[in-house]
Design a protein around this nucleic acid. Structure first.
Length: 792
DNA sequence: CGTTACCAGATTTTT
DNA sequence: TCTGGTAACG
C-alpha cells in the first residue's frame, strides 16, 4: 500500500491513481482538490514519470507555490523543484522570453500591466482622432482583452459580423481600428500585455511546428487547476500542448466559476469531454471543510442557478451553528460590529486572529473594517486593492528599469523622460512622438538622433544628456545584477535624494516605498543566486541568448519579467496571525474558521453592474456560493442600511441573496432593530444616524440610492474664496521692458500695487511688486501681464 | 517650461 | 474621497 494514498476517500484515490489519458475532476468546494492534485503529482513521480515532464498550471502564484510545497512534503526530497508549476501567465512568459524573437519580439520584451495597456489604448485613440470621452480606455481595453482571450486578432475582429454589430450598437464602430493600432503599437514597443502572453504563446505553437513539437514532448503530463476559470485561449493552448500524449488532467468546479468577466467560460468543461475520447470523470462530493449548516445553505443557494453539472455536496461534519444575519445602520457600524465580534470570539472561543476573514464584493469596502480593527488593536492584513507596484513612485522607478532593458518601450519612456524634471516638457514630448510616428521609428531612436531633428539648443542638450544617462545604465546590464543596477539608477537620477529631502508625510511614505522596492529587488537577487537553474535541459531558457550568463538569473530583465505578474496577494504571508481582509474573488481557494460575508446589499452584492442579464446574476450567485463555502465553522452575513460612497450617503435594501438561504439555517436575531443600541456607545461619525430615515420601506432601492446620491446636508468644508480683483474694463497689458522700481501697476488677479525692485536677467526680468491685497509677489515679466498705471 | 489650483469623473471582480 | 487632466500663472 502506498503511503500517500492513505487517508484518501474512494473518489480521491481514483483520481490520484489514474495515470494515462484525459482526466476530469469535478471538485466541489472543500472536497480536497489540492490534496488530490498534489498527491497525484507525487504518484506520477513515484511511478517513474520524470519531474521535468510535468506541467501544472494554476491561476495564482500563491496556488502554484502551495502546490509545489505540498508535493515536496509528500515526497520528502527535492525532486519537486524540477516540476514546472506556475500560473498560465508566468509559465508562458518564461517560455516566450526564450522564444519571443521568433515572433519578432525582443527577448527582453516588457510586460504591460492593465494600467500600461489602458494608457496605450488612450494614446492610440487620440492618434486616431477619436473622442476619448466616448472611446473610454477602460471600455475599449476590455473589448480588446475579451477578443484576445477568444483568440480573435485585429483582422478577424474587424470582419466578424456579430462583433461589428455589437460595436455598432454601442456606437463605437472604430474599436476594430483601435485594436489594430493598439496591437501594432505594443509590438513596436516590444511589449506584451497580459492577454498577449496567452495569445502570443498560442501563435508560437500554432505557427512554429518545431516549437509545438518541443513543448508537446516536454510536457507529457499536464494538470490544470481551477479549470472553470480558463478562457478559450488557455483552452486551445492546453489542447495543442496535450495533443500528443493526451495526459491532461483538469480540476474544476462549475459552481465556483467567477471570472467570466475576464473571458473565462464554463463551456470549456463541456468542451473538454467532447474533445477527448474516453475522458475519465471523477466527482469529489464529500466536503471536509464546513459544517452541515453551511453546506446546506450553500447547496440551496446554488440550486437556483440553471444548467450546472449535477452534483451533491455533502459532509460528515457536525451540524454546527446557524448562519448569523447582522444588520447595522451604517457601513461604519458594520465595521465596528465585525471588530467587536472578532474580539469577543477570540476571548470566548480562543480563536486566533488568523481564524477570521472579512470578505466583501468590492475593494472599497475595506476601509470601514480597517478603521474599526485598528481602533480595537486587532492586527489585520488587507489583500488586493492598489498593489505596491501600481503606486506612482514605484511605477516611475520601474519605468527607468524597463527603459534600460527595452528602450523601445515608449510607454515607460514617456513616464520618465521628464521625471525628475529635466526640461523636456510636453511640447518636446509631442514633437518627439510626432517625429517617431512620421518616420516610423521608435521614440527612443528620435531621441538618439535628436541633433538632426531640429530641437532648440537647450532642449537638445537636455535630451542628449538623458540619452547618455540611459545608455550608461544599459551598459551595466551585462556585468551587474538587478539590485546593483537599480541602486545605481536611484542615485544617478537623484530620485532617491529628492524623495529623501521631501519631508512631507507623503514624501516620506514615497521614500520608504522606494527603499522597500530596492530591498525587495535585493531579496529577489539573493534568492535567484541561491537557486539552481532548473532548466538543465536548456529547453526553456537558453542563456546564450540572454544577457544573463555571468550573473545567473539575477539580471534586471529577469526581475522585470516577473514583477508585473506578481500581485500583492503573492507577497503576503498567509500564515501570519492577522485577520484577513479581501474580496471574495481573492478568497477563492482559501478557507477560514470564521467568515464575515460583508455588505450583502442590493446594488453592492449582487453588484449593480452585474444584474443586467441572467448570466451575470448567476455569476454573482456563484460568488455568493464561494463566500459561504469559505467558512469552516462560523459564518456571519452582514449588511448596512446606509453606507458612504464617494463621500455621500447611499441607502440599499438587503441583498436578494439573503432570502435564498433557507430560513432554518439562518439566525435572524441580530438583524432586528436592536443593533443600533448595541453599537451605540461607539459613534464613528455621529452625523450618520440622523441620515438613516425610513429604512426598510418598500421603496425601489435603485431609485432611492440614485436620489440620495447627492445629499445637501453634507456640506464639504466650505472654503471662502480668496478675494478676487476685478480688472479695470480697459485693462490692457503694457510694455514692461522699461519697468522700474516705484512704478504703479495693475495685475489682472492681484490688483493694484507698486514695484518694489527689479531683478533677474535681461532676458528674464522679474519684478517684485507689493500689492494692496496680496502683499509682495515676484512677477516674471516674460509671462505675466501688467498694466502700468503711473511711472515714477 | 514648470508649478499649482481647480474641476470632473470614478468603483466590480484580476492574471 | 481621491485622482488625473487642464488652464492659468509665474
Amino acid at each position: 500500500m502506498l503511503e500517500y494514498i492513505k487517508g484518501l476517500n474512494e473518489a480521491q484515490k481514483e483520481a490520484v491513481l489514474h495515470i494515462n489519458g484525459p482526466l476530469m475532476i469535478v471538485a466541489g468546494a472543500g472536497s480536497g482538490k489540492t490534496k488530490v492534485l498534489t498527491t497525484r503529482i507525487a504518484h506520477l513521480l513515484s511511478t517513474g514519470v520524470d519531474a521535468f515532464n510535468i506541467l501544472a498550471l494554476t491561476f495564482t502564484n500563491k496556488a502554484a507555490r502551495e502546490m509545489k510545497e505540498r508535493v515536496e512534503r509528500i515526497l520528502g526530497n527535492n525532486e519537486a523543484r524540477n516540476l514546472y508549476i506556475g500560473t498560465f501567465h508566468s509559465v508562458f512568459a518564461r517560455i516566450l522570453r526564450a522564444e519571443a524573437p521568433k515572433l519578432g519580439y525582443p527577448h527582453h520584451f516588457t510586460i504591460y500591466d492593465t494600467d500600461d495597456a489602458k494608457s496605450v489604448v488612450k494614446t492610440v485613440v487620440n492618434e486616431l482622432n477619436l473622442d476619448d470621452k466616448h472611446y473610454k480606455p477602460n471600455i475599449v481595453y476590455n473589448r480588446i482583452s475579451q477578443a484576445k482571450n477568444g483568440l480573435i486578432g485585429p483582422a478577424e475582429y474587424a470582419t466578424d459580423y456579430y462583433i461589428q454589430q455589437e460595436d455598432a450598437r454601442s456606437n463605437r464602430p472604430a474599436i476594430a481600428q483601435v485594436y489594430e493600432a493598439y496591437a501594432k503599437r505594443c509590438f513596436k514597443n516590444g511589449s506584451m500585455d497580459f492577454d498577449d502572453l496567452l495569445l502570443k504563446f498560442y501563435e508560437l505553437l500554432k505557427h512554429f511546428p518545431e516549437s509545438l513539437h518541443k513543448y508537446q514532448h516536454k510536457f507529457k503530463y499536464i494538470l490544470i487547476d481551477e479549470f472553470q476559470d480558463t478562457n478559450p485561449a488557455q483552452y486551445e493552448i492546453i489542447k495543442l500542448l496535450g495533443a500528443v500524449y493526451e495526459n491532461v488532467c483538469v480540476v474544476g468546479d462549475d459552481a465556483q466559476s467567477i471570472y467570466s468577466f475576464r473571458g473565462a467560460t464554463i463551456e470549456n468543461i463541456l468542451q473538454f469531454q467532447k474533445d477527448y475520447d474516453d475522458v475519465k470523470v471523477v466527482k469529489l462530493e464529500q466536503n471536509y471543510r464546513s459544517t452541515q449548516s453551511i453546506i446546506t445553505a450553500a447547496n440551496e443557494v446554488i440550486k437556483r442557478n440553471k444548467g450546472q453539472i449535477p452534483k451533491n455536496l455533502w459532509t460528515e461534519n457536525i451540524e454546527g451553528e446557524k448562519i448569523r444575519l447582522v444588520r447595522t445602520m451604517t457601513d461604519n457600524d458594520e465595521g465596528k460590529y465585525v471588530a467587536d465580534t472578532i474580539q469577543e470570539q477570540k476571548l470566548r472561543n480562543h480563536f486566533n486572529n488568523r481564524d477570521f476573514a472579512i470578505l466583501y464584493r468590492t475593494n472599497s469596502q475595506s476601509r470601514a473594517f480597517e478603521e474599526s480593527l485598528r481602533r480595537m488593536n486587532i492586527p489585520y492584513t488587507i489583500y488586493g486593492g492598489i498593489s505596491f507596484y501600481q503606486r506612482k513612485e514605484i511605477k516611475d522607478f520601474i519605468s527607468y528599469l524597463r527603459v534600460i532593458v527595452n528602450p523601445s518601450d515608449e510607454e515607460s519612456l514617456k513616464r520618465i523622460i521628464n521625471f525628475p524634471a529635466r526640461g523636456i516638457g510636453k511640447t518636446t514630448l509631442d514633437k518627439a512622438v510626432l517625429m517617431a510616428n512620421e518616420n516610423n521609428i521608435s521614440m527612443w531612436a528620435v531621441l538618439c538622433n535628436a541633433a538632426s531633428m531640429g530641437f532648440k539648443a537647450g532642449t537638445l542638450e537636455a535630451i542628449e544628456q538623458f540619452v547618455q544617462m540611459i545608455k550608461s545604465f544599459a551598459s551595466m546590464l551585462n556585468t551587474k545584477n538587478a539590485y546593483e543596477v537599480a541602486t545605481h539608477v536611484g542615485k544617478q537620477t537623484n530620485i532617491v535624494r529628492e524623495l529623501f529631502n521631501d519631508k512631507t508625510t507623503e514624501g516620506l511614505a514615497r521614500y520608504e516605498n522606494i527603499q522597500e522596492l530596492l530591498n525587495s529587488i535585493k531579496e529577489w537577487v539573493d534568492n535567484q543566486q541561491n537557486m539552481a537553474l532548473i532548466d538543465e535541459d536548456g529547453i526553456l531558457i537558453d542563456n546564450r541568448d540572454t544577457q544573463e550568463t555571468q550573473k545567473g538569473q539575477a539580471g534586471l530583465s529577469g526581475y522585470l519579467q516577473q514583477i508585473t505578474l506578481l500581485t500583492d496577494t503573492d507577497q503576503k504571508d498567509p500564515e501570519a496571525d492577522t485577520v484577513k481582509l479581501m474580496t471574495i474573488h481573492a478568497a477563492k481557494g482559501l478557507e477560514f474558521s470564521c467568515v464575515f460575508a460583508a455588505g450583502l446589499e442590493e446594488s453592492l452584492f449582487p453588484n449593480a453592474m452585474s444584474i443586467n442579464t441572467r448570466e451575470e446574476l448567476e455569476e454573482e450567485r456563484r460568488l455568493f456560493y464561494v463566500v459561504i463555502t469559505r467558512a469552516k465553522h462560523k459564518l456571519w452575513i452582514t449588511y448596512a442600511n446606509s453606507r458612504y460612497r464617494f463621500g455621500s450617503v447611499i441607502q440599499n435594501d438587503p441583498s436578494r441573496f439573503i432570502e435564498e438561504i433557507p430560513e432554518d439555517q439562518l439566525d435572524r436575531s441580530y438583524a432586528g432593530g436592536g443593533i443600533k443600541n448595541q453599537v451605540g456607545s461607539w459613534s464613528g461619525r455621529p452625523a450618520y444616524d440622523r441620515l438613516n430615515r425610513g429604512y426598510g420601506s418598500g421603496d425601489d432601492a435603485a431609485t432611492k440610492s440614485r436620489e440620495s446620491a447627492k445629499p445637501t446636508y453634507i456640506s464639504s468644508s466650505a472654503k471662502t474664496p480668496a478675494p478676487v480683483h476685478i480688472p479695470s474694463l480697459d485693462f490692457a497689458p503694457s510694455d514692461t521692458s522699461h519697468l522700474a522700481a516705484g512704478d504703479k501697476v495693475e495685475h489682472q488677479k492681484f490688483g493694484f500695487g507698486e514695484v518694489v525692485r527689479m531683478e533677474g536677467s535681461a532676458h528674464n526680468p522679474i519684478a517684485t511688486v507689493n500689492f494692496k491685497l496680496g502683499g509682495e509677489k515676484k512677477i516674471m515679466l516674460n509671462y505675466a501681464k501688467l498694466r502700468i498705471i503711473k511711472e515714477s
